[in-house]
Amino acid sequence: MSCAGSPGPRPANLVSLGAFVLLVAGVALAFPWLATHAVGWQESAERYLQGGLFFVAQVLYQLEGRFEMLADAHVSTEFVRHVAELIDGFATRYLGPLAIGIAAWTPLLLLAPFIAYFMLRDGATFRHFLIRAVPNAFFERTLYLFDQVDRTARLYFQGLLALTLLDALCLAAGLWWLGVSGPLLLGIVTAVLAWIPYVGSVLGCLLVVLVAATDFPDAPQVAYGAIVLFIVVRLLDDFLFMPMTVGRSLKLHPLLTVVMIFVGGAVAGIPGLMLVLPVLGVAMVLGQTIGQVVNDPRLMARHLHARRLRKAAVSRDLY
């Protein structure tokens, strides 16, 4: 939500133009480098994937050696067969829906910069128009409400950035201690992936394990260490960092924050998990302020008095 006195047309144009030029320049500069390294990336991705699969198969073999029940179920053989089937049928089974999904979301993603530009340029005007519709008696309280909603949304995103930084630093420090290559990059990527609750965390964990297993094929304890590290950071994130950063920015009790994350996931899946905290913060501010306004008899009396005065003023010469 934009605040009053937002930049206006000229600064908004300059900011948008600057961002566009930076984007185009970045793509133009990075393209040759990307083109030359793309093949290498593909090879690296395949190497890491093979390393990860080899690690999982190795773990399953070891488990089969220890647990007769798993050996009887041929878990490792089944795993290898399933992975082979998945790889064989990946293109036909998943690429089509993936392409359709990307095609469906692309127009919305393309709209995002336009919406951002117009909100940057005209956000204050929209706010002024909205406020003008509010009766005089409730005007100050409504301004306060807008300000609180604006502040809540801003604090939430600031909290989210702080959370990402904390996650990235903890993961990077742990991975560096384990000796995994590129700890800072892995930490940042994994922390950003965690913006998508649950699914992002699983993807992040997989990424870390793939790299650890490929870097140390003969030392599976490094990959185990990476998994433990990831679980510890996730627990810290859910029960300490998130209530401290995002929860505190929204002035929510840590217990309520944790409970609401589970409720959001149960009600609306991944979008629910991502949106539950900002929506809850805004809803709490709205409920609190609207409750104060509606339950304030003095404000209602002033509003009714003002309506009578206005009616008298406009109908003075009618009778």
């Binding site: 006195g5 206006g8 003008r132 005089n136 005007f139 100050e140 003095r298 002033r302 003002a306 005065l309």
Partner: peptide, 17 residues
């Protein structure tokens, strides 16, 4: 001016208490 809100009040109307 971009930060100001303009309001009108009738004679006798309370602006704030």
């Amino acid at each position: 001016l971009g930060f100001l809100h303009f309001r009108t009040y009738q004679a006798g109307e309370v602006i704030f208490d």
